[in-house]
Amino acid sequence: MKEKKELMKEGKRLDGRGMGDLRHIAITANPIKNAAGSAYIEWGGNKILAAVYGPREALPKHISDPQRAIIKCRYMMAPFSSLEEHGRVGMNRRAVEISKVTKETFESVVMLEMFPGSEISIMIEVLQGDGGTRAAGITCAAVAMALSGIPMTDLPYAVSAGKIGSDVVLDLNKIEDNYSDADMPIAVNPRNREVTLLQMDGEMTREEIRKAMDMVIEAGKTISRIQREAILAPYQKASEAYG
């Protein structure tokens, strides 16, 4: 059993947010010059870099697929990313799992069949973590992927929903995540509202999950808009200068 901690005050969350409110999100395009595409996201206290390399020759050769490109994904948390002690260096089981589900999210939107035999690498480095890093990482990596010019059928976003006491809440921060009754990260392809990542643990009723899904879809409109603005910002800047 988790230790109980007061996470609500006068019907609001500790940081003043309502149940369905997102934290502040800002995305910057192309901070990593060497990558084909990259993005930096600040989402609440999360600070995350995502970069995309490729398509390039898949190595070692035996992992390549003659029909389509393969995606490699690496999600990592920096050893200095948390307010607690120095993290373990290298991949742990959690990072391996997140890397896998992130890769699978992108397999549904990247047009892999256009690059047979090649690999596309997605790297997500969490420089500072504050809850919901996998969702923020996917949202950021989607922007990096678009900027890389690798064709995609949709631009996924991700956000976490969950439950605190009897309240269904959106976008849990680190403290909420530690003491919540349920956590459910979701990635969505917005055009058809297809869910491409779904994880959950804790306890939620079917009704509560439906409510959480509604919150995710509603917040998705905001996240998609922020992603779009980040992607187009470099072009708009040049347009404004001479348009």
């Binding site: 949709d154 917005p190 992603q227 187009l232």
Partner: peptide
Amino acid sequence: LVIPGEILAAKPLRLDD
């Protein structure tokens, strides 16, 4: 300016990308 996933037209167009 458009981004990946954006609907361009409610009808089929024969276009690259």
